[in-house]
Write a protein that binds this DNA or RNA. Structure first.
Lengths: 359, 359
DNA sequence: ATGAAAGCGCTAACAC
DNA sequence: GTGTTAGCGCTTTCAT
């Protein structure tokens, strides 16, 4: 009796809703048109409803056809609210990151799309509060997992632990200052070692390097790779060939000149290891303007393998990040973590040396 | 009587739910803890509930404090389901687009974030079906508006109209083959005119141009700008100085050589208008290798103002897209459209010439 | 100023 | 096989 009343009420309201709400087709609309229950439609379209809900092939056919004709689009908010997955993955990016990082993001989006996920991005710069807010925000939207590219700041230490315990799961790209988390890292150190090996092989005796600071991990890894590279090649460290300066973080012609002054003019370096391809190109051009031959007098290496590095003159010897491999692994690992959140994954990708004319 | 029963049932279930569902704090949890109704909480936190819902300052204070302490994060799915905005904006990008486009996307994300919106991206390439599927998908997720960068294909003609009538609203970047839609466009034509003006001013007599095809809009605009530029400068068109070839779509050294062979060696061009900075850099370097002086023998211009264009040697005269202006306008316009969907906006951004050494 | 009740669109458990 | 019912977390209208 009660149920009957409620049902009538419901039906009435449904019709009313249909009239006012001119936007989208609902499951119930299809059910009504197909003259079946909503569960049947749900089952036919999305195979939900548990195992004891079955429908005949004929019914399924009919429902599918009608849904198609009505251009039915399930409402994700409703599905999520009813406990289903959102199929959204989020990315946190440093808004000052070099553009080449977006090459990686683009690939990540592609991989995710293949697996039926949507991709949400958020950017910030050196702001732990902001980072945590974004993570909260992602969680509000039901984001299932996060790929972070925005945590390599000296200031981000164990406070990050607060972030760690949060849902959704996070895969950090580049090891964060944090115990017991999932991360995937490009072995920057190995990249620099390969460069040192290569330069030594080419007969360079005074290999210089410049770095922005000792506090961010990517810089530390470069320095470490440099030291290890020298060591395995039996070259002793000359500290004058290592220049640290925070302002080098942002490439500029002035910086390039300063680096040349110190390393080449003053310290007589015959090779310069640049922290990225932009710097390499600038240094090469400044050297040429100052009458040096590259690689005759000074060899120069880059890092990132940007588009232009291939057609610079001379073309630039550099390290390829293997972003496609990174993207593929990142997506696979993150999805694994989401499925079975007990696992902890720490993986490393070896980048490769690309030999070109600048060495 | 009935309502009483239902209420008891509800309360019981709520507690049960709280025990099983260990994930997130709900509005009701705060209400219970603060010993107020859910509406009061809703009002305090989000100022919802209409005008006839009021709470005392003391109550508000108390609620806010408790929400804070419990780290309450409203569930967007529930809010959306209850009819609120999603605050999500989507972008459609061509997965083969040059990386510099992501510079623009990054800015768009920043602007959107400032206004409290989240950003979802989807990529595809030359696939109208795919494009429409993404739009449907965005709509499933409650995306409020879409910025499209992925519609400039010769194949995408009036079929796009099907897309037009869809919700969410779409702002096209670059005029689509579609009547009566919202678009924002960089005036590529004006950019090329500025280049022609500049080259003529520099005394160039035989200005060559190469283009990929006559069917995509960006190419048509370039060609149009070239013709207009010649006309206003009183230079008559020599069709041999215009080279169309579909394969030029993807920059390569071979293409650069071919272009030099045709335009410089064969047609004796003293200036080459490249379709982007990548090509310009390649052509400059190939010219130098073949013994030409740039800009002495041949001037070369680019388009896009990439990072490296400034420190190439010679640095590259190019056109700056003004992506920041584009991003700002795109966001403002889209949000306007969302608010009042009756408006139709067609705006154009004038790019600027950047004079450097290559001319 | 607060409470009660219904509903957003969908899923799931259970009864028939 | 199909129908019934309750509930996800939130908002809103109406009543008090």
């Amino acid at each position: 009796m009660i149920s009957r009343e409620i049902k009538n009420l419901e039906t009435e309201k449904m019709y009313k809703a249909k009239d006012t709400n001119n936007t989208s087709i609902r499951l119930a609309d299809i059910a009504r048109k197909a003259n079946v229950s909503r569960i049947a439609v749900s089952k036919a379209l999305l195979n939900t409803g548990g195992n004891n809900v079955r429908i005949s092939d004929a019914t399924r056919e009919k429902i599918l056809k009608i849904a198609e004709s009505m251009n039915y689009k399930p409402n994700m908010a409703a599905r999520m609210l009813a406990g289903k997955k959102s199929n959204i993955i989020g990315a946190l990016i440093d808004s000052h990151a070099p553009l080449c990082l977006y090459e990686c993001l683009r690939m990540i989006e592609r991989k995710l799309a293949e697996k039926g996920y949507r991709f949400m991005i958020a950017q910030q710069h050196n702001d732990l509060g902001g980072l945590m807010e974004y993570i909260d925000d992602f969680s509000r939207y039901g984001v299932e997992g996060i790929i972070s590219f925005a945590h390599d700041y000296p200031e981000f230490n164990e406070q990050l632990a607060k972030v760690l315990r949060s849902k959704p799961d996070i895969l950090y790209i580049g090891k964060p200052k944090l115990k017991n988390c999932n991360y995937l890292e490009v072995d920057v150190s190995a990249g620099i070692r390969k460069i040192v090996d290569h330069l030594v092989r080419k007969g360079r005796k005074r290999i210089g390097i410049f770095l922005a600071d000792k506090t961010t991990r990517t810089m530390q890894l470069r320095y470490q790779g440099y030291l290890e590279g020298l060591k395995t090649n039996g070259v002793s460290l000359d500290e004058n060939l290592v220049v640290f300066n925070n302002k080098f973080r942002h490439p500029s012609m002035e910086n390039a000149s300063e680096i040349i002054n110190i390393l080449v003019k003053q310290e007589k370096a015959d090779a310069i290891i640049s922290m990225n391809d932009n710097y390499a190109a600038m240094i090469i051009n400044q050297l040429k303007k100052s009458g040096y031959d590259v690689p005759g007098d000074v060899a120069v290496t880059g890092f990132d393998n940007m588009d232009f590095s291939e057609f610079n003159s001379p073309s630039i010897t550099t390290i390829n990040h293997c972003y496609d491999a990174l993207a593929e692994k990142a997506v696979n690992i993150l999805l694994e973590i989401i499925m079975d959140n007990k696992i902890t994954v720490n993986e490393v990708i070896k980048p490769e040396l690309i030999e070109r004319e600048s060495t």
